[in-house]
Design a binder for these strands. Structure first.
Lengths: 221, 221
DNA sequence: TTCTACATTTTTGAATGCAAAATTCTCGAT
DNA sequence: ATCGAGAATTTTGCATTCAAAAATGTAGAA
């Protein structure tokens, strides 16, 4: 198994919440599960620690990182900045074909909204945001976006919404697609920022910060 | 020696250009120099690879990452976004004391400009930009900024400038300080973007991309 | 002389072993 | 029964070791 694959597997385990935030990461257990020895596992944990997904405590092992309210706020703030930048760049560089792809994802998402399928709605939602970032054509930006969004993924794409919030979000997405189609970079940046600000407020209001006993997604194992 | 210290030491070696971009990283040699074995060294290299400073080639070892023109452009683009965001946030949160600190760094920088001391000028310059990022009060943002700027540091803070360019840069910095003192977030964001766009053009024009035989900062060893 | 096939050496990537540190357990005193 | 000191166990972090892969060197053929 390649180094990057090991990192990916553990990242997935953390993002799925299989090892809940704050929980110790069982080295021995993961070694057996991934069929690797401790050396490559520990290399992967150090990388994930640099990404902010894992917390290393010298001589006391590693834990799945826990997000405080402040962390969550900071991450959303940066995410806003990154998406706004991506939106501007995307408007300069996106191809017609790519716009069609985003439009298709949008239509999909709206359908799932009408059907009341939150899970599928979120899937389409993500596809749109990621589509915009990809269209920005900046791999450095895409990389940072991936790493930042990974850390707030569960909060962002799991939080339940009131019908009102949901309706607002969909309207915002209409405006997002519209701005993209008009290639209105400044407008798109503004909408994306507002959209994420609203999402952040929802998440914080829902008390999603991962402090202590807030293991929303329990260990599956 | 602690893990983070090892990472820091190697990072410094790379940023100093002691191991020039594209050069093989001599594991054995670094082990002796840092008085550690290969295990912790390799852990550090993987972390630095995730940061983008090191390139890992499976079964062929690691090299100091080389930046193409495109990489440089992408990094500057992201840096613009991060600094613009930092500027906006800083205007909302900066204390009077912090403004005074930035103003002091600015005065210093201008003095070094008048004296024609490019090295000291760049030092003050960096202090200003970093001061703004710090004042934004967002550690996530600060972390990303650190990692992105590290990769373009040599290009950004080594490139020589024509007297005209230099004069323009100083004027831009006057405007930066002014906007900060007026706490004009939008204005500051705009100026920072333009400032960095100009710097990027300088750097690219100077052909700083680290392709092949372009080891501007030679091995010191 | 130059090119290629093969053997040798070096280097890489990962498993294991070992000392130090932390955690857990035990047992006696209060 | 509870608390705390000390022993036993576990876990961590790193050095070492080992197999596989790549790089290098050598010799023979064209």
């Amino acid at each position: 198994m390649l180094h990057e694959e090991v990192v990916g597997r553990i990242r997935a385990i953390l993002l799925d919440g299989e090892i809940p935030p704050g929980a110790r990461i069982p080295e021995r257990e993961l070694c057996e599960r991934l069929q690797i020895s401790r050396t490559p596992l520990r290399e992967a944990l150090k990388v994930l620690a640099a990404e902010g997904l894992v917390q290393l405590l010298p001589h006391r092992g590693s834990r799945a990182a826990k997000l405080t309210d402040k962390d969550m706020r900071d991450l959303f703030e940066v995410c806003q900045g990154l998406e706004a930048l991506a939106g501007e760049l995307a408007c300069e560089r996106i191809t017609d074909a790519e716009i069609d792809e985003v439009a298709a994802a949008h239509a999909d998402m709206v359908r799932h909204y009408r059907e009341g399928d939150l899970i599928q709605y979120y899937r389409g939602n993500r596809a749109i945001h990621e589509g915009i970032v990809t269209a920005a054509g900046n791999p450095v930006l895409a990389g940072l976006y991936t790493s930042v969004t990974a850390r707030i993924r569960r909060a962002r794409y799991v939080t339940p919404m009131t019908p009102e919030r949901w309706a607002v979000a969909v309207r915002e997405h209409d405006a997002i697609l519209n701005a993209l189609q008009r290639r209105d970079g400044v407008g798109l940046a503004h909408i994306l920022r507002a959209h994420l600000r609203h999402k952040r407020e929802e998440v914080l209001q829902a008390g999603f910060a991962e402090t202590e006993a807030n293991d929303l997604v329990p260990r599956i194992a």
